[in-house]
Design a protein around this nucleic acid. Structure first.
Lengths: 330, 330
DNA sequence: TTGTACGCGTTATCAG
DNA sequence: CTGATAACGCGTACAA
């Protein structure tokens, strides 16, 4: 027993399939016809088949969201923002997460050619020429969240990440801190590199001295890795402030410092990045740079919908300004 | 300039569309033919159109995952588990989250008739006869995560939730606590009701006295609501232990207790539920009942794939046993 | 082994 | 305003 089709509805209503299609899509029809069609639709519980529709109109009514790992709360917020916007639209959200290697991202990008999505929101954690090339060759609307690779002309939402570090460092300096460390994630990732570059630049501008050993990299952006990394931090007894790659890492650092009996913020001030819910739940509560992940998700989704509605317009770049949320860890 | 189709490939390779299709789907072909087809595919960068394929074979290669809110870390873990399994398969993950009202769930369930998914994993936060009915009428494989409504015969993964409460309460009793409170979420949700029922039953079995005021409900399962709820908890000065609806709520409670200067676990022991990463990041670290959300996600996905491969088999019910993870809050 | 031709369910064109 | 019908791209009988 198969699902009712447009022709079963037509049969049931005693009209042609064309009339059914018109009623479904809101085109004019005689009231009499319309009501008979609607009755038949209700009777049979008819739902148009999305594959057939997609084949015909070349629209899948799906948007693909692609990022590295849903384990990161920032991506969760982003997903939420995207989801909220799409929920108000006709689009479904297909989640292409857990693409941790360049090869996997490439594979996933290539699969977009199957046409199962009308648009792509991507936040690539790695930079790779091949990735850039594949994105630029996609014939569907794309919005990239994060730093736009040179030569790539797509809609873009990115955060002034170096301003984020600046807000944090300036705040720390104002509180009398002068020896600031950076507990970062891997430098081969985009966020890692951005934080590192920003840190260097900002400290220079603030005329704070900077040595290589001030910066340390964890294996990834998790609290566990952060904990391990900070436990082999050579300058731990010399710094009076620590900026962490994200809140998770800050929480890992906080735990380590607490176990060592190092007072926060007495001895070392700690600031996180992302301003996730976690920031207000750890102890001491965490000063954090809000990168507005959820807003970025919303902005990206709106940008994409706008671009789908208006394919010829020039690409837009939205830059969002981070905010420093001061709590008790600084 | 449109995407290459199977017939452009056929043309380019000088063979028929049937041969191209056969090569694509791994059927026998003369080596000569196969290599020419493969070359043409590579030349043109051909990707089969998923809508056309879906229409023909009546398979979308998509799985729909539906739950209330991705803001809850437990659902994030679940999503991760599902995602990991699907990533190894041919299926894409369609995320239908943020369905917070019964009406929205119903709408989403009805839309499944469009055939955009080959299966559904659903974890409904509300019980409603209409929801149950709609699920039972779906003609695609369904696995339900959570307590199975009576009369619904679908694959199911659920957790022995009352055992979870029992583990927590028994542990607390062994540590000499006798006056245990429950900081729960709303009672009109499935998890809320399960926790409440389990709590009553377990305390009775442990021969601990129980009065209604021992149990309090927050407006939802967030830390914020938990904080607000506990701040009007009438018995706060009488209890010596508190079981919370989830880790988020426990973190909210911890914050409140800390602000009041009530020692944990000295004065009050606190246990959370879900054993999310948060549990090891708050201070004191949180004893928590691990409900294995990620495993449940994996189990559900595997159950669904198995059911798709074997539609006639009887429905399976998997019950997973919670584990108590003891940390320093008890 | 290979090719031709049909149908999946829908939309859109075109003639009535 | 309505109905018949031709695509959309793919898989697969069936015939060669």
């Amino acid at each position: 027993m198969r699902s009712p089709t447009i022709s079963s509805v037509a049969l049931h209503a005693g009209v042609s399939v064309a009339s059914v299609s018109r009623v479904m899509n809101g085109f004019a029809a005689r009231p009499e016809t319309e009501s008979r069609v609607r009755a038949a639709i209700a009777d049979l519980g008819y739902q148009p088949n999305s594959a057939a529709r997609a084949l015909k109109v070349r629209e899948s009514d799906q948007i693909c969201l692609s990022f590295a790992d849903i384990g990161n709360p920032a991506y969760v917020s982003m997903t939420r923002g995207v989801g909220r916007v799409l929920h108000e639209s006709k689009y479904r959200l297909v989640l292409a997460s857990s693409f941790s290697t360049v090869g996997e991202i490439i594979q996933q990008l290539e699969s977009m050619g199957r046409g199962y999505a009308d648009g792509l929101i991507i936040s690539p954690i790695y930079s790779d020429p091949k990735i850039t090339e594949l994105i630029s060759q996609l014939k569907m609307p794309v919005v990239l969240i994060g730093t736009l690779p040179t030569g790539l002309d797509v809609d873009n939402v990115h955060i002034d990440s170096s301003l984020g570090i600046k807000l944090a460092a300036t705040h720390l300096k104002e509180r009398g801190r002068s020896k600031i460390g950076l507990l970062n994630g891997p430098l081969n990732t985009n966020p890692g590199r951005r934080r590192s570059d920003g840190f260097r630049k900002v400290l220079k501008n603030l005329r704070l001295e900077i040595v290589e050993e001030q910066m340390i990299q964890a294996d990834d952006f998790t609290s566990q890795s952060a904990y391990e990394a900070i436990s082999r931090y050579p300058l731990i007894s010399e710094i009076d402030a620590l900026i962490c790659g994200n809140d998770l890492m800050a929480a890992g650092a906080l735990r380590f410092l607490s176990e060592l009996g190092i007072d926060v913020p007495g001895k070392i001030a700690v600031v996180g990045i992302d301003n996730t819910e976690l920031a207000s739940l750890v102890k001491p509560t965490l000063t954090s740079v809000d990168l507005l992940a959820e807003s970025r998700g919303e902005l990206a989704a709106n940008l994409l919908l706008d671009r789908i509605a208006n394919p010829k317009r020039a690409s837009k770049k939205i830059v969002v300004q981070p905010k420093l949320i001061v709590r008790s860890s600084t």
